[in-house]
Amino acid sequence: MTPDTVLVLKRRLAQLGRGLALALVLIWSVGPITMIVVAAFTPEKEIFSVTKSAGWQPTLENFVMLWAKWGDFFTGLLNSLIVTLGATLLAVVVSTLAGFGYSRWQSRLLASSAFSMIALRLLPPIVTTLPLFPIVNAFGLNDTYLVLILLYAAFFVSMGTMVMRTFIDQIPRELDEAAMVDGATSLQILRRVILPLCGQGMIAVAIFVIVYAWNEFLFAFIFTTKFAKTAPLVMSEMVGSLDGVEWGVVFAATTVQLLPVLIFVVLCQRHLIEGLTAGATKG
């Protein structure tokens, strides 16, 4: 072999290796999702049959069964939607206000409060459920949207604030000063100068809260029992059902719950990456 052919061979081999690695990464990431979605469109009998019938005939029967038997699931989806919108709105508003505060004013007190926000976020959520449980009961907030909205927003406010501060820091202060010369108050500066320019940050914060609130299990499991049950909780009941799990229906539910947020994440991937690098890891 001439050195040239060795070189070509080596390059081919490297290319092959990278192609193989890429294929593995794809199977790993998308394989489990694809499998569930395909199974959701497969007749219940055939999903677990070891001998697959020749052609795959997609069917909606699992979705029909889901609709007929698990009205709870669709109420759950609606509850999830309400809780997600509420938590997102609250978290974005509160984070934007705080991000503005921390970006434009500096003092020892403010800095230490920002620091304690980040430190607090590190507490395991399950720990706060213990004392909250009796308190929530005492206020009659058990099984309401409000308790979930407050909890979901609270656990994302620190990160949201840091993301917003990073984005607002990039807006030149000269703009504030110009508005101030025209006699604008801080609130007016926030509304007229900052808000129109920090949409990117707000979208990034919203994405994190939306994905979290839509999928969250622990708080929903502990604080809702009937009326405010979210979709993931109903799904867990389907899987834990004592009188035999209907897997076809479970796959259909998993698909319905997953697809909207999956499409959303794929569409917003740029903001997701920006948000994570802007604040998630700084604090």
């Binding site: 403010l110 507490l123 706060t128």
Partner: peptide
């Protein structure tokens, strides 16, 4: 400049702090 009086920034960060205090 707003930064000359840091106390003016407190109202903006207060809702976030109150929420974290109450829930965590």
């Amino acid at each position: 400049l707003p930064s000359q009086n840091p106390r003016a920034g407190v109202p903006f960060v207060l809702p976030a702090l109150a929420m974290l205090a109450a829930m965590i």
